[in-house]
């Protein structure tokens, strides 16, 4: 009985540490992919004038989970009509917020994207998307630092906390 209890005490903090580390990693990787997508969207809108529905459909075919599902739903939302892009875009990301590991900062970026993407002429989109990419890159740099420092710290802290609890109970 005692061994089981000690094992649980040892494993639990480690699991929490690994979970937090994974979450940081998920957030960073998904944000990195989103940033890459924004660059692609920027080119497709300003150079080729491709409608948003087609852009998101193409992005969904890259099969990067869970973004592909989000992009496909956005594409369907646009093509089904009757709703604003702002609503379609934001609500799809809001639904998958946890899976993406996105925090408030990322959701603010999503909100900014949803506000005006596609809604003006090419010149307007050029400026707007360039601004979005800049703020996305800034956030990405911050998350990269966090990922590099915090991800391994969470794991180490988890292991240490587990070991500490076992020692205390022994």
């Amino acid at each position: 009985m005692k061994i089981i209890l000690l094992s649980v005490l040892f494993i639990m903090p480690i699991a929490i540490g690994f979970h937090l580390s994974k979450k940081t990693e998920k957030c960073y990787k998904n944000l990195k992919y989103l940033n890459m997508c924004l660059e692609k969207i920027h080119i497709q809108i300003t150079q080729y004038l491709i409608p948003l529905g087609d852009i998101f459909y193409e992005l969904s075919k890259e099969e990067i989970k869970p973004m592909d599902e989000i992009f496909l739903s956005i594409c369907k939302g646009i093509e089904n009509g009757g709703q604003t892009f702002k609503y379609v875009f934001y609500s799809e990301f809001e639904l998958k917020k946890e899976t993406l590991g996105f925090a408030n900062e990322e959701m603010d970026l999503i909100k900014n994207i949803s506000e005006l993407m596609g809604s003006s002429n090419v010149t307007g989109q050029e400026k707007y998307l360039a601004g979005l990419i800049k703020s996305s890159e800034k956030l990405l740099t911050y998350r990269e630092e966090q990922y590099k420092t915090k991800a391994s710290s969470y794991k180490k802290l988890g292991i240490l906390a587990g070991a500490f609890l076992v020692i205390v109970f022994l």
């Binding site: 809108i45 004038l49 491709i50 409608p51 948003l52 529905g53 646009i78 093509e79 009509g81 009757g82 709703q83 604003t84 892009f85 379609v88 596609g118 809604s119 003006s120 002429n121 090419v122 307007g124 989109q125």
Partner: peptide, 11 residues
């Protein structure tokens, strides 16, 4: 209007 232009007036 936005729905008719597939949310992409630039296109």
């Amino acid at each position: 209007f936005y729905s008719a232009v597939r949310q992409s007036p630039y296109a």
